[in-house]
Amino acid sequence: MTRFGIAALVALLPVAAAAQGAPSFDCAKASNASERAVCKSPELAKADRELAGLYAALAAKLTGPAKESLEKSQIRWIVGRNRACRTNEDPDVIERCLTTRYADRIADLKASAAGPYPFVEDQAIEKTGKVGKVTYTLDLRYPRFAGNTADFSALNRAYADSAAKAAKETTPGVDAGVDREEQWEAMQSYALYRPGPDSITVALTFWAYTGGAHGYGSLTCALVDLHTGKPVPPSGVFAEGAPWLKEVTAIVGADLKKQFVENPGFEDALEPRKLTKTVNSAERFCWQSDRLQVYFNQYEVGPYSAGPYTVDIPYSRLKPLLRPGSLVAR
């Protein structure tokens, strides 16, 4: 895209709305399904105003390559939002798509503003087609770290390879064996969180339907050290020798036991030795700005119908266990 093209698009980026309750743009000029849906929904209009305010505040703080990177990322987000949330004319489907997109972007902007600008670029594998009787749609987004604070090549390659593998596994082959019309779908998105000025948490959400009774999905998190360009396991956050796994497992077990009263899970999943093994996985540690969220995907501690379970632990509760000057210290 030429610099003139970028400048022209940036001029159209949302600005704070004057009318209370309206989105950040003029609904009389709404030109696509996404914009029209935002204008019809007070919740989405509110999210749009919040996003516009966060973007404007961050843009005002940046200069040079950082500001140009932010402008390009916002343009990519708008283009991706409009493209992804128009594939189905069902208003409920469009609204769910937009709700997810706005929540992820708002989290990204908050994370980007909470420390040195991280230069995270949005990448995507997008594909539609039909093989035999199966129509399929892929919309797989993943991050690319473009900053110069570290060598991010291995991390970026891992995210790109993972997305490519997911695309391959959710694209029907000629031997799919489907004898009736089916619609396969695979979606992946990510949100960024800033537990500390020198770190970013990438929360990667995946969902797919490739036939059968229902779809399947997962959320995985990674804490990235912006000075090394590498993911950091929990042992790199907690103090050496601290009984962090025992303490976190105890907190998680007590919280899940309460959740199981209204949302029954697998009782045997709470057995201390089994739960310790389940908890001890870096991918379920979602380090956020004010808390650690421990995330359990469907089937891990409860039946599919129960959905995922989360346990939030404020950093104040973990403070005695944290490494001095750790990546989540504030």
Rank of each mutant, 00 (worst) to 15 (best):
M1G: 09
M1Y: 09
V10K: 02
L13N: 05
P14W: 04
Q20W: 05
G21P: 02
G21V: 02
S24R: 03
S24T: 09
A30Y: 06
K40Y: 06
K46Y: 01
G53C: 04
G53Q: 06
Y55V: 01
A59H: 07
P65E: 09
A66H: 03
S73H: 06
R81W: 09
A84N: 15
C97S: 09
T100D: 15
I106L: 14
A114S: 11
V120C: 06
V120R: 00
Q123K: 15
G129A: 07
V134G: 00
T137I: 12
L138D: 02
D139V: 03
F145Y: 08
A150C: 14
Y159A: 08
A164F: 08
T171Q: 07
G177N: 11
Q183A: 14
W184I: 13
Y190W: 13
A191W: 01
Y193W: 10
G215T: 00
Y216K: 08
T220K: 12
T220F: 05
G229T: 01
P233I: 03
P234C: 00
G236F: 05
V237W: 02
W244Q: 11
W244C: 08
W244V: 11
L245E: 14
V252A: 13
A269K: 05
P272F: 07
R273L: 14
K274G: 03
K277E: 15
R284A: 04
D290K: 08
V294L: 10
Q298V: 13
A306D: 01
V311E: 00
I313R: 03
K319H: 11
K319Y: 12
S326A: 14
S326E: 02
R330S: 10
